[in-house]
Nucleic acid binder design. Sequence first.
DNA 1: AGCAAATAATGAACGCTATTCATTACTTAC
DNA 2: GTAAGTAATGAATAGCGTTCATTATTTGCT
Lengths: 228, 228
Amino acid sequence: MSVVALAKIPRPSKAQRIDTIVESARKVFCASGFEKGSIVDIAKDAGIAEGTIYRYFDGKRSLLDEVLHRHYAVFFDDVQQTLPSIEGHSNRLRYLIRRTLLSISGDRGICGLITRDKRPLDNETPSLSQDLNRQIAVLMADEVKAGIKSRTFHCNTSPSIVCDMIGGGLELIAYSYMRTGKSIDVDKVTDSISLTFLSGIESSDPTTESLANLVERLEQTADRLDHS
Amino acid sequence: MSVVALAKIPRPSKAQRIDTIVESARKVFCASGFEKGSIVDIAKDAGIAEGTIYRYFDGKRSLLDEVLHRHYAVFFDDVQQTLPSIEGHSNRLRYLIRRTLLSISGDRGICGLITRDKRPLDNETPSLSQDLNRQIAVLMADEVKAGIKSRTFHCNTSPSIVCDMIGGGLELIAYSYMRTGKSIDVDKVTDSISLTFLSGIESSDPTTESLANLVERLEQTADRLDHS
DNA sequence: AGCAAATAATGAACGCTATTCATTACTTAC
DNA sequence: GTAAGTAATGAATAGCGTTCATTATTTGCT
């Protein structure tokens, strides 16, 4: 035996191992995409053998699912905590749009991964990738439906189609962000989207609605004059 | 030599060969998708060897590009012929939406192929797949911009974002169609989309407009008073 | 502490692809 | 009719995800 003692390296716990693998997978997938990022690369990055990955994950796809799952968890925790504190269907929709845009512009790597990996259709792929958009779509649709019930919105159009337009718009904006690299002006885009669908969906006639806004601005101006 | 004469089968012309290959590729890709549809399958369907395909196409991707290119050609020929005959920006936008929906619901095979194959991002893949949506987006954006110039639409929102919402909405509707198989009510969906974005984009009535101007002047006056 | 039995990790081997290329078959031009 | 040119072939290659017999480590029991 050599003079140098063979230090028995203790094995990491199951949870640690999984964390290591998922983090390496995230790195590799974000850098190379799902197709091109290979299991060997991930194993190398994690400092383990390929086979080990298959002890903890069913396959490459499951690994991607876990990476995305962890990413989404943060988003949905945040949404679930914030959404109930916001008053009004329009404002809640607005928040959902804004929060999604923040998520997009906040992590370019994951955004690219999600953007590339759209739309599985096949029987076997269980389509976790578009869960974010799907779940958000549900949240939005609920808001629109509730808004219709409470007469905030009119019902000349289908809630699901409005949500498709918002969600689809957000997807294309994310795609454009990935292609061009031009940073997203979150507030501006939020305004633009909200304006576009709101004026088309709100119950009261446009005249009254904008009049109400104008009156509000007038009052604010009057307040300012009073204080000066 | 065997008694049966070896009938010298004359080779088909270059154009015929290409047509055969592309048609087989279309069949295979539509049936199995781009990933799962293999070159061997295509070659078998076309009755040739794999190697032959590579004499006419750079690779699998080019083959897909050609399949889509041929599909799009029909669509754009139709659009280019019809669009100029339609009066009014709203009506032209409406036509583009309707024509896209017809294209989607008209060829489930290709629709699935396009739906699955969204969003290349990588340097090498030259992204032919989303050409349809991109080119339509340009047509729509032109219409919106012209509408703003001619005061048909107001400019509180960005044309590109409106088009993202329409295009993205159409994509999600196509996706939903592929997943559920439920046929699309083209006219109803066209109406729904048009209503949603139109009422949000059309110029408000003159009374409100002038009032808005008045308020703005008042606000500016207040600003001046503040600064003095 | 020592010794099974259980559990984890390994990496060579497998099967499946797209792609290439020396070889063979056909066409064309003189 | 033959030689030069062009097209077609399919076995060979390289790269991937995945499996599994083998090896290494940990755990539980006395």
